[in-house]
Amino acid sequence: MTPLIFSLLAFGISLGAGVLGALLGIGGGIIVVPALTLLLKVDIRYAIGASIVSVIATSSGAAAAYVRERLTNLRVGMFLELGTTAGALTGAYLAGVIGGRWLYLIFGSVLAYSSVMMFRKRDGAVSTAPRSPVADRLQLHGSFFDEAQHKRIDYRVARPGLGLGLMYVAGISSGLLGIGSGGLKVPAMDLAMGLPIKVSTATSNFMIGVTAAACAGVYFARGDIDPFIAAPVAAGVLLGATGGSRLLPRLKSSLVRSMFVIVLFWIALEMILRGLR
């Protein structure tokens, strides 16, 4: 394989990762890392460096559209970023203390549990969550126009405190493992805070860029972000995420949920296997 062919392949794969990441509120690392290491034989260090870049590219590429269309709940996103960035800092600090093996097992099990819970919620059961004075005070509730149903959906936000705590945990996993942790953020908003699934993925998309940026400095200073590897990844993901963001408003919520559950289960399996190995 010549460097030119490598770049074109990496670009093509990243294009797909960008589309999927934009729809599901995840960073695309689950596609970029295995593709780079297994298929293109890149050292895992630089694959993770490129994956951090891909998370930020997915986030900014997709959020530009989602924020304008109000799929992203800005206030919820900014409020929860307090938890994710504090968690990312804690995680980076803990990285030297806790072994990687147990981390993968723990987070893998959490993700597997979340995917089962999100699958069980597929009938779109009406949220019976309690009213939250904190959410009222912070004006977190929102609405968006669902193009798939041709109507405006109003929703209320529940349990902001629990959501913030879960985001702290998601942030810790980002800091420890160098991932965007969209796989933890979406279930937290969907299951605990009662947000519509499209709002959850769009808001997760908005936040993962900040979480990843909090980790990016370390990888850059270590020389893990390589221009030759990261350039086709960044360019592909940026294009893919921008294109994918045009798709989400038109997709049915049930389809988005099914896709998310399948991908989440796959990530969980991958993490648990990595922990057992």
């Binding site: 890149v42 050292d43 893990d224």
Partner: peptide, 9 residues
Amino acid sequence: LINRPNPLR
């Protein structure tokens, strides 16, 4: 190209 740390850090 794909197996060395980036010197621009």
